[in-house]
Amino acid sequence: MTGPTRGVVVDVHPTYIEVDLKVKGATELEDMDLSYLVVRSMPCSPSYRAVPSKLSTLELTYIRLHNCVEAAISVKVKKHGLWPGCRGLFTASTASYEDMEILLLAFEGDRLPVDASRRIELSRRVVCVELHQPEGKLVFSAKALHGSDEKNVRRVRKTFTPKRAGKSKENIKIGSCEMEVTVTWSLLPSCKYDYDKSLERA
Results as ranks from 00 to 15, higher is better:
residue 81 G to A: 09
residue 53 S to W: 08
residue 118 R to V: 05
residue 67 N to V: 06
residue 63 I to Q: 08
residue 110 D to S: 10
residue 87 R to E: 09
residue 95 A to S: 13
residue 106 A to N: 04
residue 115 D to F: 08
residue 125 R to L: 14
residue 61 T to P: 00
residue 111 R to P: 00
residue 55 L to K: 14
residue 136 G to H: 05
residue 112 L to I: 08
residue 93 S to Q: 08
residue 87 R to Q: 12
residue 55 L to F: 14
residue 106 A to H: 10
residue 100 M to N: 08
residue 134 P to H: 15
residue 68 C to T: 14
residue 57 T to S: 06
residue 83 W to I: 14
residue 75 V to M: 09
residue 129 V to N: 04
residue 98 E to L: 00
residue 83 W to C: 12
residue 111 R to T: 11
residue 55 L to C: 10
residue 131 L to Q: 10
residue 131 L to S: 11
residue 105 L to R: 12
residue 129 V to T: 09
residue 66 H to L: 14
residue 120 I to A: 09
residue 119 R to M: 15
residue 100 M to E: 12
residue 66 H to D: 15
residue 76 K to W: 05
residue 82 L to I: 14
residue 132 H to W: 01
residue 138 L to W: 13
residue 86 C to N: 13
residue 90 F to N: 03
residue 120 I to N: 10
residue 142 A to N: 09
residue 121 E to K: 12
residue 118 R to P: 00
residue 108 E to R: 02
residue 139 V to F: 08
residue 95 A to T: 03
residue 106 A to R: 08
residue 114 V to W: 03
residue 125 R to N: 15
residue 57 T to W: 00
residue 108 E to W: 02
residue 98 E to Q: 03
residue 121 E to D: 09
residue 110 D to T: 11
residue 55 L to G: 07
residue 137 K to E: 09
residue 66 H to T: 15
residue 81 G to L: 08
residue 59 E to Q: 12
residue 122 L to H: 03
residue 90 F to W: 08
residue 86 C to M: 07
residue 86 C to I: 12
residue 96 S to A: 15
residue 71 A to S: 14
residue 144 A to E: 07
residue 117 S to N: 10
residue 92 A to I: 03
residue 93 S to M: 07
residue 84 P to K: 09
residue 63 I to G: 02
residue 95 A to Y: 05
residue 75 V to C: 13
residue 92 A to Y: 02
residue 56 S to K: 13
residue 79 K to G: 05
residue 65 L to G: 06
residue 140 F to N: 15
residue 98 E to F: 01
residue 117 S to A: 10
residue 139 V to S: 10
residue 116 A to C: 03
residue 118 R to G: 01
residue 131 L to T: 11
residue 122 L to P: 04
residue 82 L to D: 12
residue 68 C to Q: 08
residue 63 I to K: 06
residue 53 S to Y: 06
residue 132 H to R: 00
residue 101 E to N: 13
residue 54 K to A: 15
residue 136 G to N: 02
residue 93 S to F: 06
residue 124 R to H: 13
residue 60 L to E: 12
residue 116 A to T: 06
residue 94 T to N: 04
residue 124 R to F: 14
residue 109 G to V: 09
residue 79 K to F: 04
residue 107 F to H: 11
residue 135 E to I: 01
residue 84 P to S: 13
residue 76 K to S: 10
residue 142 A to G: 11
residue 141 S to D: 01
residue 63 I to P: 00
residue 127 V to W: 05
residue 121 E to M: 13
residue 115 D to R: 03
residue 75 V to I: 15
residue 126 V to H: 00
residue 54 K to M: 14
residue 127 V to S: 02
residue 54 K to I: 14
residue 137 K to I: 00
residue 103 L to S: 12
residue 112 L to Y: 03
residue 111 R to F: 07
residue 97 Y to M: 02
residue 84 P to M: 13
residue 103 L to V: 09
residue 67 N to K: 04
residue 80 H to N: 13
residue 139 V to A: 11
residue 129 V to A: 04
residue 86 C to W: 06
residue 121 E to S: 14
residue 94 T to P: 00
residue 113 P to S: 11
residue 133 Q to C: 10
residue 136 G to E: 05
residue 67 N to I: 06
